[in-house]
Design a binder for these strands. Structure first.
Lengths: 197, 197
DNA sequence: GACATTCTGGATCAATCAGTCCAGAACGCA
DNA sequence: TGCGTTCTGGACTGATTGATCCAGAATGTC
C-alpha cells in the first residue's frame, strides 16, 4: 500500500525478450536492455532480480508463446496439418519477432552450454516440452506410442535445424522448401491410413 | 634471420579452436585462450592479429577438418554409406573434441548473428561448402541434380538439428536414434534403385 | 494535508574486457 | 664473440561489464 510500479511489467518483459532473442544473452548489455524496456537500472533489479533472472523469465515467456501457437493450431485442424502450420507460423512468421532471429530456446541452448549450464538446461527443458507437444499431436493423428516418440524427436530435430537455417542469410523460400521436403519425406514414412487423417 | 617463433603455430591454433568450440566466441576470454595455447599475449597478437582474426582461422580449420572427414568417407565406400558414416563420425565422435560441443560452425552462426555479422556469415559460408559436399555425394549416388540439391539441403538441416541436440543433455543413444530415423526416412524418399547403390 | 512506504534516476563500485607497449631475453649471422 | 633482429613476458590503458547504493520524488492511507 504505497507507490505502485510505474511501468507495465509484462510489456517490459516482452521487450527484454526481444533483445535477448535477437542478440543473445551475453551480447545483450544492460544499457541495451534498459533502453528497450524503457525503465531504469533500479527498476530492473527490483522487478527481476538480475540479468540472469530476467533471462530465465524470458525463456519461460518464449516457451509459453510457442506452445500456444501449437495449441491453437491443434484446436483448428487435423493433427498433421496442425504440425505443418506450426512450422509455417513459428519459423516463417514468428509472432513478435523476426524470422532471422531463430528460436530463443535453441539460441540459448547453444550459446550458454559450457558457459552457464543452468540457463542452457533451462532452455533445453522448455524445448523438451515443445517436443512433448509434437508427440501428443502425433498420437492424436493415430501414431502408435513408439512411433509417435520417434517421429516427435525427428520433428524436433528438423525444428532445430530450421532455426539454425533461419540465422543464416538464406532466402525465405529455401526454408519454405525445407519444410516442404520434411513433410513430404515424413509422409512417406508414416503408414498411409495415418498420414491421410 | 633472427630469433624464430618459440611455439608451434598450428598446435596453438588447434588449442584455440577447442576453446572457441567449447565456450563460444564471446565467453572465451583472452586469458582462457592464452592458457590453453600456452603462449603470451604479445605472441598471440603478433601471430594472429587479434581475437577476431584468430577466430576466423579457427573457423577455417574446423571446416577443413569437417570436409576431410567427408572426403575420407567417400573414398572408402559407396556414397550413401559414406554420408551415414560422416554423421556417425562427426556427430558421435568428433575428432579432437567432445560430442557435447556440437559444431563450431553452427555454434558460431547462431552466437554471432546480429552481434558480428561478418563472423556469422563466415561460418555460414563454410557450412555451405559442407552442404556442397553432401550434394556432390548424392550426385555420385545417382540422384538427379534437382533432387541432389533438395536432399543436400535436407541433410544439412538434419546436421544442424543434430548439432543442437548434441549441446542438450540428451543421451548419446538419442542422437544415434535420430540419425537412424533420418536415414530410414531418407531411404524411403529416394527411388529404390538409387538408395540401394 | 501529513506520514509511511515504495519506486525511480543517477552516481558509483569493483571486476573484467580486449588491446597496446616496452624493456629485456634469445637467437642467427658474421 | 659481438651485433642486429625478432620474439617474449608482464605492466598498463581506457572502455565496458553487471551490480549496488542513496537521495529524492511519487503515491495510497489515515
Amino acid at each position: 500500500m504505497a507507490r505502485p510500479l510505474e511501468f507495465d511489467r509484462d510489456a517490459a518483459l516482452d521487450r527484454a525478450m526481444r533483445v535477448f532473442w535477437r542478440q543473445g544473452y551475453q551480447a545483450a548489455s544492460l544499457p541495451d536492455l534498459l533502453t528497450a524496456m524503457a525503465i531504469s537500472r533500479s527498476s530492473l533489479y527490483a522487478a527481476f532480480g538480475d540479468k540472469r533472472g530476467l533471462m530465465a523469465e524470458c525463456l519461460d515467456l518464449f516457451a509459453a508463446r510457442t506452445l500456444q501457437i501449437l495449441a491453437r493450431a491443434r484446436a483448428a485442424q487435423p493433427p498433421l496439418e496442425a504440425l505443418r502450420q506450426f512450422f509455417d507460423r513459428s519459423v516463417v512468421d514468428p509472432p513478435g519477432g523476426q524470422p532471422e532471429w531463430g528460436c530463443l530456446l535453441v539460441n540459448t541452448v547453444l550459446e550458454m552450454a559450457d558457459v552457464d549450464d543452468g540457463l542452457s538446461a533451462h532452455a533445453a527443458t522448455r524445448l523438451g516440452e515443445v517436443q512433448a507437444g509434437f508427440e501428443a499431436c502425433l498420437r492424436d493423428a493415430g501414431c502408435p506410442p513408439a512411433q509417435a516418440d520417434e517421429l516427435a524427436a525427428f520433428l524436433m530435430l528438423v525444428n532445430q535445424g530450421l532455426r539454425v537455417s533461419s540465422r543464416r542469410a538464406q532466402p525465405l523460400q529455401a526454408r519454405r522448401d525445407q519444410i516442404a521436403t520434411t513433410f513430404r519425406v515424413l509422409s512417406a514414412a508414416i503408414p498411409t491410413e495415418v498420414a491421410s487423417t
